[in-house]
Amino acid sequence: MTFTKRLLGKANGMAGAFLLGIVFFIAVLGSVYTPHDPLKSDLLNRFAEASATHPLGTDMFGRDILSRLMRGAWVSVSIGLGTLVLPVVLGTVLGAAAGYFRGWFDRILIMILDALMAFPGLLIALGLMAVIGANKYGVILALSVAYLPAITRVVRGSVLSVSQSEFVEASATMGNSRLYTLIVHVLPNCLAPLIVLTTMMFGWVLLAESALSFLGLGVPPPEPSWGNILAEAKAHLMRYPMLGLLPGLCISVALLGVNLLGDALRDELDPKSAPSKEVI
């Protein structure tokens, strides 16, 4: 059975992939089409009830909520994906180099990473945002830096353990260079934990982006993201709870999908935590 089939054969894998699929579909759709202009306000039509023209009603500026959530999905998801690039690429390179070549580079890097990890990721991101200024790319950069240590440590750890395997020694005895051995023999065997962590990280970033936007340091209004839609709803929550519930629900669904899929991936890819399949 192929890997994908096994993954989707699990209840949590299937549900996670389904939920994430919906989120991605809406995000992509939201980038090219929304029923109304998500930025166009209509002050005569504030807090409108759900109707045929506005299926989810309008907000305090009379903007169509559905359109804002769709465009917000695109903004949030693209920030989430954009944030994965730098930590995964840089973290893999740094972690692999540190774990495989060891020595002073490894020691200094680990010291810096440990110092960084002592601060909560969100705190680092907050500090950086204050320096960079609040905009979409600032969010991506700040969150990338905040999540770099986690990826680097995970890659380093698995490179360290895979490097002890006999097939790595076997490669050395065949006269292969260290770099070749690292790329061909070591790294492919470290992919599993990296994939799991990356999936989970997508969820954390979605949440962190929402938190930053909620604090006013994220994507600046009027451009919608799930976080700042939620933040703007704050003042009207008592009278119009739907304004806050809807973006909150979007975030929850996306996170649930990521976590379910992440769990299924971990069960499938990480043999240590998965139940044994051996019969005898």
Partner: peptide, 22 residues
């Protein structure tokens, strides 16, 4: 030295860890 080492090869004890699983 590299050329000479090409003429020496190894077989390891544990066939479960001496082959790259991927």
């Amino acid at each position: 030295e590299r050329r000479l080492r090409q003429r020496i090869r190894f077989v390891f004890q544990d066939p479960f860890s001496s082959l790259n699983p991927r």
